[in-house]
C-alpha cells in the first residue's frame, strides 16, 4: 500500500521484544537500504536481532562471524590457490576453470542471491582497525569485481545488513557515516518483565520480583568484573525453575550463582560479601529511586 506501511515492517517477534527506538532504527535501515550498526552491552541480544529480523521478514540469513584475523576480501570471495595448485599437481578437479576455485564469502553470496537477504556481520570490532574501511565501497554500492576473472557481482536486492560491535575498537568515521546506528540500552524493569515473560511464560510473579531485585542489585555492584546480562538472567531463571526453588529461598542468598557470575573473582567477592555479614535486598524499595519510579 503506502510507502510507510512497507517501511514499518519489523515489530519484533514472539520471542524477541524490541524497544520502539530499536524497531524504528531497524525499519529505517531496511527502508534506506543502509547497514544497521548495533552496539550495546554483551548479552542484550545484538546478534539475536538479525536472526529475528530474518524470521519476521521471511528473508534467508547469512552470518559472517568476524575474528581477529578476518579480512575484508574474505567476505567477498577467496581465490583458493592452494586447492588449485594441489589439483594441478594430482590432476584432479577442473583446473582449467579458474571460477571453480573462486569461493564466495557471506557478503558475496548475499549480493549474488536472487532474493533480498539478511546479512549479519557479527562483532566487527574484533577485526583489524582497517577492516571496516576495506568494505566501504562494497557496502555503499553493493557490488564488487572478482579480480581474477573480471566478473562483476552486483546485488540485485540490497541486503539488510546488521552489524554488531562490542565497542572494543573505535570504528572509522567514514564507515560510521554510512550506517544507521542503534545502541541497545540495558532493559529497564518493565521491559525486562516482558522479556522474561516471553522466555518463561508461567513464572510465579513473586518469584520473578525476587529474582529481578537480586539481579538488578548484582548489576549495581561496581566491583564486578563482568555484570550479568539478560541472557544470564534467562539461564538463571531456567535453573531456578528446574530445581523448584521458591521465592522465599532466594530471599537471603543467591543459588546457582555460577549461571549469573562468569568470573571466579566475582563469585569469590560475592562469597566474601555474604560471609562478611553483608545483606542483600529483597524488595524493590531497597534498590534506590532508579527502580522505583
Amino acid at each position: 500500500m503506502s510507502e510507510s506501511n512497507e517501511f514499518n515492517r519489523f515489530q519484533g517477534t514472539e520471542s524477541y521484544i524490541a524497544s520502539e527506538s530499536l524497531m524504528s532504527a531497524v525499519n529505517c535501515a531496511i527502508a534506506l537500504e543502509r547497514p544497521l550498526l548495533i552496539k550495546g552491552e554483551p548479552g542484550t541480544g545484538k546478534t539475536l536481532l538479525a536472526r529475528h529480523i530474518s524470521e519476521a521478514l521471511g528473508m534467508p540469513m547469512e552470518s559472517w562471524y568476524i575474528k581477529s584475523t578476518s579480512k575484508g576480501e574474505e567476505g567477498l570471495y577467496v581465490y583458493d590457490t592452494l586447492q588449485r595448485l594441489n589439483d594441478a599437481r594430482f590432476g584432479e578437479g577442473n583446473v582449467g576453470d579458474i571460477r571453480s576455485y573462486i569461493k564466495y564469502g557471506p557478503l558475496g553470496r548475499v549480493f549474488a542471491a536472487k532474493e533480498r537477504q539478511v546479512l549479519l556481520i557479527d562483532e566487527i570490532d574484533k577485526a583489524d582497525v582497517e577492516f571496516p574501511n576495506d568494505l566501504l565501497r562494497e557496502i555503499d554500492e553493493m557490488r564488487f569485481t572478482v579480480m581474477e576473472t573480471g566478473d562483476e557481482i552486483v546485488a540485485a536486492h540490497r541486503p539488510v545488513v546488521i552489524i554488531t560491535s562490542n565497542n572494543e575498537k573505535e570504528l572509522p568515521d567514514a564507515f560510521l557515516r554510512r550506517c544507521i546506528f542503534h545502541f541497545i540500552d540495558f532493559p529497564d524493569r518493565e521491559l525486562m518483565n516482558q522479556i522474561v515473560a516471553v522466555h518463561h511464560p508461567n513464572l510465579d510473579a513473586t518469584l520473578l520480583d525476587q529474582v529481578l531485585v537480586k539481579f538488578y542489585w548484582l548489576r549495581g555492584q561496581n566491583e564486578l568484573r563482568k555484570k550479568p546480562s539478560t541472557s544470564e538472567l534467562i539461564d538463571w531463571i531456567a535453573a531456578l525453575l528446574a530445581s523448584g526453588i521458591t521465592s522465599a529461598q532466594i530471599e537471603a542468598h543467591i543459588p546457582f550463582v555460577g549461571s549469573l557470575l562468569k568470573n571466579e573473582q566475582d563469585t569469590e567477592a560475592l562469597g566474601e560479601y555474604a560471609s562478611g555479614g553483608g545483606t542483600m535486598p529483597s524488595q524493590w524499595s531497597d534498590l534506590g529511586p532508579k527502580y522505583n519510579q
Partner: peptide, 15 residues
C-alpha cells in the same frame, strides 16, 4: 518519539 528515534539513528553514530 518516532521522529526522535529516527533522527538519532540516522545522525548519531556513537552512544
Amino acid at each position: 518519539l518516532s521522529f526522535y528515534n529516527l533522527s538519532r539513528a540516522c545522525l548519531v553514530k556513537s552512544e
